[in-house]
Nucleic acid binder design. Structure first.
Lengths: 105, 105
DNA sequence: CGGAATCCATAGGGATACTG
DNA sequence: CAGTATCCCTATGGATTCCG
């Protein structure tokens, strides 16, 4: 039971790491270890946990390929594109205004 | 130090309540008690805390008027419009797809 | 490689009562 | 009305180890 559609959206993509993971997967599919390395600062436990949540939410799909496991965005995940872009753009402007620093990506 | 502009954006508007509060203030300025009543389920402590954070982030302004205190969006707060709208729209679609229920607002 | 399980610390949040 | 101030508690997350 949400009190606002935005609340629902943040319930799915909110938090510190999910959008970072989505941002990388938006570029292209990643192997587990590969994606893992692109999200420094997070613990193993949290990484897996968030990844599972994104899977359970239907935004990310998991495929076992040869000796690897590959993660990619589902159509549902891609439907977040405009929203993520809007947040991205605002984040860029805001960083410019406040002097906050953003690394990587 | 963020790893993605979206992370910065979520740092400012993320969490369970801030966007709900912003959504109401986007409609029009509100008195304290008035806004308070529109955000049911949150504790007094969290309500004030979130409101202060939005003020400190420069998204919300506080004005003492006669016996009341009024909160409204600043220009910076209004600059979030497109991003909030995109999230709102996605939230509505998502609710339709998943059957999640959204009340109020 | 791709995780699962465990243990532990603390920050975040709830309920309630009090104040200018 | 518009907040502060406590007290308490549990959910979240970190570090580390183990497993197929």
């Amino acid at each position: 039971m949400y009190h606002c559609p935005v609340e629902l959206a943040l319930d799915v993509i909110g938090g510190k790491w999910r959008t970072v993971m989505l941002a990388h997967l938006k570029e292209r599919p990643h192997h587990y270890g590969e994606l893992r390395r692109k999200v420094p600062g997070i613990s193993e436990k949290m990484f897996v946990q968030r990844l599972r949540e994104l899977q359970d939410a239907g935004l990310v799909s998991r495929t076992e390929i040869s000796p690897h496991v590959q993660y990619s965005l589902t159509d549902e995940g891609r439907s977040l594109g405009p929203a993520l872009q809007a947040l991205y753009d605002w984040g860029v402007e805001r960083a410019a205004r406040t002097g906050a620093s953003i690394v990587g990506t």
